[in-house]
Design a binder for these strands. Structure first.
Lengths: 242, 242
DNA sequence: TATTTTAATATGTACAAACATATAAAACAT
DNA sequence: ATGTTTTATATGTTTGTACATATTAAAATA
């Protein structure tokens, strides 16, 4: 395997280097605490300056994928698999990573008048309708999450999407919108009759409630998502560093 | 107010610059979408090179405190207050930030034989005892979290701590251990009789269960923490960027 | 043999310089 | 008045260079 960088590409060198490093990290040869070649060697091999290489390395260190130590070297983190990118995987990917096959039980799309919270969040006029997406998803044996999602009118998914592709992929490829920032609120709730019915559990059973505010790179609101998770089949994981 | 950098200090210039920028961000003059002086000006004012300044800026951009745009400038993020640092505030600080006064209802310290999970997590011998810390905390009106925390024997808090200072402060100042990485698992549970009794709620009521694995900068395990949060008085928040 | 010193190695810090590119405002032409 | 081109501004990219410092292993010394 010979990784190389295209100096004539319009993609910045440190971005290309970052991608190559990500591939190296995935490689079993380097995974689990193995050391990368040192910076001088690597920069020679990739034919970029040490400064540019360090730009790429720094980003991966921030993300927690790499651990560097003065005088020793740079190794792949043992304690972290995908770091915060976890939160950015699509729901299907998240589940796939845990070896859980996913099924869609219900899918309903409609245009609705926004509630006050939505008017405020999206900063739109009250008469402007927004796209509402309801989904019931889970394992083949039964559903374990019910969620309702609202989108900014400017995105306005056509409603004819197949939703077989992950949502974030549809947004990136078809609408050139990249979800960059997400704020989430997580709490425990007792299922009411409606949610209990959807998730096939008794009313009163504990569910994990997750409310998610999604913004793009310019901090403009994209999506508001509210999900109810069956507590015995879903654990929410968070990783953070400082 | 004149911020300045000490070139004779043994603290790296980009770290000093980072601290100054953090103070600027806190300043009402710059908060909420206001623009910072441009890089060339700032680097002249601080008497450091643009490269060094950008090193500091990059870190804050990565944390989400600053938003930069080519051709425009660098501004303080409007959507983010403290970003991921939120997860690193002590519990008391977290609550203080929400205007909630905190009281300790119970505090119990003991040395116990570690369970299998602890032996594995801390990578110690089964006969090595670990410090167990149980706390019941909450508002003056009543408790809303009960947690049990175990510490690595190498840290071995003397047991004579007053625990009036935040835990992370005790660890940093007295034990020179800096908690750098945290992995958390969050789920919804139904309170059993014990937890229900502690939190003064009916057994069966939903509680937020938070299990937290804490590591230091070298990825060595420090603490394992398990908390039960009364669902109607605590919402867990997460912010993430990519 | 045990201890100390030294050297090799790898990352950390810092600056200077040059050019590229996105954005908004000003100048210009229609 | 409106659309286009230019220009000023600010961040983005990339390289080169020099020296500092933490760590480990090897060499020198007691």
């Amino acid at each position: 395997m010979h990784l190389s960088i295209d100096h004539n590409s319009n993609v910045p060198l440190h971005i290309q280097a970052e991608e190559l490093l990500r591939k190296m990290i995935e490689d079993p040869q380097f995974r689990n605490g193995k050391f990368l070649p040192n910076e001088v060697e690597l920069s020679k091999e990739l034919q970029i300056s040490r400064t540019t290489l360090r730009q790429a390395l720094n980003k991966l260190v921030y993300e927690g994928l790499l651990v560097r130590k003065k005088g020793i070297g740079t190794k792949v983190s043992e304690k972290t698999v995908s770091s915060k990118s976890m939160n950015w995987k699509s729901f299907s990917q998240e589940m796939a990573a845990r070896g859980i096959p996913i099924r869609n039980f219900e899918l309903h799309i409609s245009w609705v008048k926004p509630q006050e919270e939505l008017v405020h969040f999206f900063d739109i006029k009250p008469e402007q309708k927004v796209l509402k997406l309801e989904r019931l998803r889970g394992r083949p044996e039964g559903p374990f999450v019910y969620f309702v999602s609202y989108f900014h009118p400017a995105i306005g998914l056509s409603g004819e999407e197949d939703f077989k592709r992950p949502l974030y992929e549809i947004l990136e490829q078809d609408y050139k919108v990249i979800a960059t920032l997400s704020k989430e609120e997580i709490s425990a709730k007792a299922a009411d009759n409606f949610i209990g019915g959807k998730l096939e559990i008794d009313a009163g059973s504990p569910v994990l409630f997750r409310k998610r505010f999604v913004y793009d790179q310019d901090e403009k609101p994209i999506e508001l998502n509210m999900g109810y998770y069956k507590s015995d089949s879903f654990i929410y994981t968070v990783e953070s560093r400082r």
